[in-house]
Write a protein that binds this DNA or RNA. Structure first.
Length: 399
RNA sequence: GGUGGGUUACUCAAGUGGCCAACGAGGGCGGAUUGUAAAUCCGCUGACUACGUCUUCGAAGGUUCGAAUCCUUCACCCACCA
């Protein structure tokens, strides 16, 4: 029983520190029902969840299955500093209202996966604000600069002359202090969080807590490009609130290699089933396309439902295999005689008339499924379906 | 506080008075092929009803017939020293 639980909990993790501690927690839970806490921090700056976040959330949901209570930590205080990601250190300051708004939509999305009754939402501003300068100093005395520079991220940036703000040094300390305050039993985060997660252990010890949190790291999910991590700013993400056909289409557009990564981290199939599938694909028993379609269906179903997912699949096949037109697309109204390039811009298919001209020259633009090559064309009254490339459509009413 | 180096398009990175709307690479977009996969080949990649015009090389001034390139001031970044 415990063994199975532990196995399911460990699945797909990149690294676990102090797995014995987790085992003890599980034993206790099965003995007398004692629950334990699992902390995970979330940044309130981006209100849109994508699949990358769900890797973590799914893991939390599994802990909930086995007696874990989730401490859903909103980093409203730490968001003001910004985690040292190597990117720009400057961040816009969020107002209280912004944060509340973000959190509301954030948690609403998160509870598609998490059990609300086994989740406590906490805000680190509640205790970090009270820490004060004295508390900060005490906190900071736990760490040496040399140790800080050991952090992979910092040492790389230091070596490559990328600036490091002093405030960024503070970030791991504060995140660690959160664990002290919350007395977390386990903390989970991405592999990029290793340093911060370990800081929690160190500080819990320094502040005299009886035991230190176990740490679990999840791999970072690659984005659609398969190289960089999934993030909204890179535009390589699949949002959990996206339309079924978008989710379906985006999953299908990933590379075959990446598909296995997604299977491992996102699918609910057992690891042995996935292994089998992988084998079948490599022996050509199963076409990779089929495997990918199933994955796309599973993921689409998770955030919508089976029916919608199937519809998305049909739509997809009709549009891309049958070269048909999608059933619904954005509609626009325009004035009679509008220049085709301008119409493309107005219909948000092109960013500029210059780009529109180029695409027309390159045979990328069609009206009602017929390629055009006259960039000087003006549209007369009527209804048209404009298309750029294979994926961009719009319906235009000219009057 | 001192000394030196730097800031070019989405990113990296050439260009040190006219040949610069700016080499090259990556990325992106499009075409062919295909499974909206990979790989490959080709084209495009500042804006503008457009063989011309306008705006861009950290910012503002200046020198010049002409400036990404030279000068001045400012801002920001980095390294070393203190």
């Amino acid at each position: 029983m415990i063994k199975e639980a532990l196995e399911e909990i460990s699945r797909g993790t990149a690294e676990i520190i102090d797995i014995e501690a987790i085992e003890k927690l599980l034993i206790k839970y099965y003995e007398d029902g004692t629950t334990y806490t699992v902390k995970a921090g979330f940044d309130p700056t981006a209100p849109d969840l994508h699949l990358g976040h769900t890797v973590l959330l799914q893991k939390l949901a599994i802990f909930q299955k086995f007696g874990g209570r989730v401490q859903f930590l909103i980093g409203d205080f730490t968001a003001m500093i910004g985690d040292p990601t190597g990117k720009s250190a400057t961040r816009k300051v969020l107002t209280k209202d912004d944060i509340i708004k973000n959190i509301t939509s954030y948690t609403k999305q998160a509870f598609k996966i998490l059990d609300e009754n086994k989740t406590t939402i906490v805000y680190n501003n509640d205790w970090l604000e009270k820490l004060g300068a004295g508390g900060m100093l005490q906190l900071a005395s736990n760490l040496t600069v040399a140790r800080m520079l050991e952090r992979d991220d910092f040492s790389k940036r230091y070596a490559s002359n990328t600036p490091i703000a002093v405030s960024e040094f503070i970030y791991p300390l504060l995140q660690g202090y959160d664990s002290v305050h919350l007395e977390s039993d386990i903390e989970i985060g991405g592999t990029d969080q290793k340093f911060n997660l370990l800081m929690g252990r160190q500080l819990q010890k320094a502040y005299g807590l009886k035991k230190q949190q176990a740490v679990m790291m999840m791999p970072i999910l690659e984005g659609l490009d398969g190289v960089q991590k999934m993030s909204k700013s890179l535009g390589n993400y699949i949002g959990v609130t996206e339309e079924p056909k978008n989710i379906y289409g985006k999953v299908l557009s990933i590379s075959d290699d990446l598909m296995w990564r997604y299977y491992e981290l996102l699918s609910e199939k057992s690891l042995s089933d996935i292994e089998q599938l992988k084998k079948d694909v490599s022996t050509r028993t199963v076409h990779p396309k089929i495997a990918k379609e199933n994955l796309a269906l599973e993921i689409t179903t998770r955030f919508h439902n089976e029916e919608l997912a199937k519809l998305a699949k049909e739509e997809f096949n009709s549009v891309f295999k049958g070269k048909n037109i999608p059933t619904d697309m954005a509609e626009f109204e325009m004035q009679d005689g509008i220049w085709i390039c301008q119409a493309l811009v107005d219909a948000k298919l092109e960013p500029s008339t210059s780009q529109a001209r180029r695409d027309i020259k390159q045979n990328a633009v069609s009206i009602d499924q017929k390629k055009i090559n006259d960039e000087k064309l003006n549209l007369e009254a009527g209804e048209y379906i404009l298309q750029v490339g294979k994926k961009r459509f719009a319906k235009v009413k000219v009057k």
